[in-house]
């Protein structure tokens, strides 16, 4: 089964013998992109968050074969140690991580989240469903799909707010 994935701008032609390979395992085991983490493998933690065709999703709950032709951004595409993105630098400055395992998912998720907010998408906290603002509560709700057991949530919120304000 041939699958073409464009990951972080580079095209990868994968030959998959087994359709059971999740997008997450394709990235980690077949493309050696280990930045995307496996925390639960069931869409319950968000550690595997990647951006597919502009949308953040749980890569564990998708088959690689379903993404033939898709464009995927992983944490490796957000920024490298020598060339970090503003969100990554803000996570370091605000200590938005401890063990670091959920961190790539948090950062990818936050990056896509700000774009969702820019497009005016509502959340369950947006009472009138219109013109949601970047309040701390909105950030918390929109980031609740990314579990952090070290519990850096307040620092994560600070990092995201600062990044968003910096970009505004």
């Amino acid at each position: 089964m041939d699958v073409t994935l464009t990951v972080n701008g580079a095209q990868h032609d994968l030959r998959l013998d087994d359709p059971r390979v999740s997008l997450l395992d394709a990235l980690r085991q077949h493309l050696d992109l280990n930045g995307t983490k496996k925390g639960c493998d069931h869409g319950q933690c968000g550690a595997c968050t990647v951006i597919v065709n502009g949308r953040r999703i749980n890569s564990c709950l998708s088959l690689a074969v379903m993404h033939d032709g898709d464009e995927i951004t992983t944490i490796e595409g957000i920024g490298t140690p020598d060339d970090l993105a503003p969100m990554q630098r803000a996570f370091i400055r605000h200590d938005g991580f401890q063990c670091g395992y959920c961190t790539p998912g948090q950062i990818v998720s936050a990056t896509a989240m700000l774009e969702e907010l820019r497009q005016g998408w509502p959340s369950q906290l947006s009472d009138d469903l219109k013109n949601p603002e970047l309040t701390d509560e909105e950030i918390r709700e929109r980031m609740s799909g990314n579990i952090c057991r070290c519990s850096c949530y307040p620092n994560i919120v600070d990092a995201i707010r600062e990044t968003a304000e910096g970009a505004a």
Binding site: G43, R55, N58, L61, M113, S123, G145, N146
Partner: peptide, 12 residues
């Protein structure tokens, strides 16, 4: 819809 799951899951 917005009360359900997470943003990542709702996106998919």
């Amino acid at each position: 819809i917005l009360a359900g799951a997470s943003a990542q899951i709702r996106n998919r």
